[in-house]
């Protein structure tokens, strides 16, 4: 495939980087990335991946846009209140870059549909807002050996980590089980300053592009913690746990389970 003149202009700032070049840009154009959620994190991740020219972006989200989302979910807008978030993100990202094909998946992920969905992508990005989905996505990615770039936010703190199954840690190496619903912040406690998911989402997008380009060091075996109020980044080492129930040497989770629990339905 040769670049069109339009592509040469659009991606010129990538192509002139020694670490990218035309070859790297072609890898980006051929990449298939799945976003879990088109909310606070999924919006900036998808925005940067679409701008970068990621050729296929799948977006899983069954929710519709509410006015209270717009303080941070930057791919949506006021006119689209009530529209499905994956559909709205498709409109925004395809308008930004005509090289990008966005596939909206207007479902909730569950143990019966996730394996099929993620098998069609190279990399999965978790921007979900709840623990059942987080563990479901982790387990499915480990079982399929699929790289997973995970992000989380709460109030003024963000976390990013990159899971390369078998090479590094997974989410369960860190926390074996989801926290009981009582320990999860309640709706009233779960505020977030709108720019925080922008910072975390941009870090996730950078991790995805590094994986596609095979450049630099992914955040494997590492949890990056961002404290917005102190403007502080901390790296915490997370070794792979040989006793991990899903990615350990003798795993007890060899197929997907039921993950639903009664959490607060507050959406990030």
């Amino acid at each position: 495939m040769d670049f069109t003149d339009e592509q040469i202009h659009r991606y010129s700032r990538h192509i002139i980087l020694p670490e990218v070049g035309g070859k790297g840009q072609k890898k980006i154009l051929n990449a298939k990335v799945l976003l879990v959620g088109a909310g606070g994190l999924g919006c900036p991740v998808g925005y940067y991946l679409a701008a970068a020219g990621v050729g296929t972006i799948g977006i899983v989200d069954s929710d519709t846009i509410e006015l209270s989302n717009l303080q941070r979910q930057i791919a949506h807008n006021t006119e689209r209140i009530g529209m499905n978030k994956a559909e709205s993100a498709k409109l925004t990202f395809e308008a930004l870059n005509t090289d990008v094909k966005v596939i909206p998946i207007k479902e909730r992920l569950n143990k019966d549909n996730i394996m099929d969905i993620i098998s069609q992508y190279d990399i999965v990005v978790d921007g979900s807002d709840n623990f059942p989905t987080r563990y479901l996505v982790n387990d499915a990615c480990v079982l399929q050996g699929k790289p997973l770039v995970s992000g989380a936010i709460l109030r003024f703190e963000g976390q990013v980590t990159t899971i390369i199954p078998k090479e590094g840690h997974c989410y369960r190496c860190l926390f074996e089980e989801p926290p009981p619903p009582g320990l999860v912040p309640s709706c009233q406690e779960a505020g977030v300053l709108g720019a925080l998911p922008g910072v975390v989402g941009a870090l996730q997008a950078m991790e995805v592009l590094k994986l596609i380009l095979e450049q630099g060091e992914p955040l494997k075996n590492t949890l990056l913690i961002y404290n917005a109020l102190q403007t502080e980044f901390r790296r915490v080492k997370i070794p792979r746990n040989p006793d991990c129930p899903v990615c350990g040497d003798n795993p007890t989770i060899t197929e997907l389970q039921d993950y639903e629990a009664d959490y607060c339905q507050m959406r990030f």
């Binding site: 670049f3 040469i8 202009h9 010129s12 700032r13 192509i15 002139i16 070049g21 035309g22 070859k23």
Partner: peptide
Amino acid sequence: CPYTFVKSKLAIEE
């Protein structure tokens, strides 16, 4: 610039 270099780089990559 920078398209002079972009074109040259794409050519030499091949």
